[in-house]
Nucleic acid binder design. Structure first.
Lengths: 126, 126
DNA sequence: TTTTTTCACTTGCAAAGTGCAAGTAAAATT
DNA sequence: AATTTTACTTGCACTTTGCAAGTGAAAAAA
């Protein structure tokens, strides 16, 4: 995945790396890979620290997690919040990131219906 | 992306390559990349031939298109339908593939809302 | 306070995937 | 019969992925 510039509180400026003006293509430029949406999912599940993400059952490699957290921050889907005094951070969804809930819910429903043996322990409506 | 076995008309058996029982992770195992959902989008837009997909504005490389069509067929999201007599094929969404409409619509809405300059010429409700 | 453990990464490397260009053979068209 | 189009495949350079190991700071334990 190629890299991209930051984001505003309303809507992000079109980066030159955009493949087309299609909103689906555009979305895939931001999270079209095997890991990014799982990090978003974890954030919806209340996980917020680096180790929380690595503890998820899929076992994201730590170098990829670093990379994804950085990209998500750059594209304004998440923000880093400094933890008590120290140099450590928690991550949280921005409004833009929270707006992905319908996407995740649709994928969850699809998976539950069409892929045998899947179960959604945690990701609820609301 | 690692490869996987075929699919039934109800729900697909769990492949050993599955990363977790999470329906989202499972879905991403099938279409978690930058191109697959664009092929699905094109099919929803009525495109069905190899050249139709290559003609989309994102310009998928032909080797990747071949690969994606094969994987989508294997995983039961699309099927190859033989064209009049010859050895050529058209591609169409299966029921399982059509069931991805809510996912694409959610992504479309998200892109339109949060990514400046995107526009959805074609992908409609229904 | 010192030691140990945990956390949040980074680095190195082999393997796999991507993207581009060029090639090919069959089908369709002229 | 010759030309063009279609649906691919192949080759190759480059990038990304996944695994393991290493590192330094912070937190916890002794």
């Amino acid at each position: 995945m190629p890299r991209r510039p930051p984001a505003s509180s309303t809507s992000s400026p079109a980066p030159s790396s955009r493949r087309s003006p299609c909103p689906v293509a555009c979305a895939l430029d931001l999270f079209g890979d095997r890991w990014t949406l799982l990090v978003i999912r974890d954030l919806f599940l209340g996980r917020s620290r680096f180790k929380d993400f690595t503890a998820s059952p899929e076992g994201i490699p730590t170098n990829l997690l670093s990379d994804r957290l950085e990209r998500l921050t750059e594209s304004g889907l998440i923000s880093r919040v400094p933890l008590e005094g120290g140099k450590r951070f928690a991550y949280e969804l921005t409004e833009k990131g929270k707006a992905l809930k319908p996407v995740l819910l649709a994928m969850k429903e699809w998976g539950l219906r069409w892929e045998e043996g899947t179960r959604a322990d945690l990701l609820n409506q609301s």
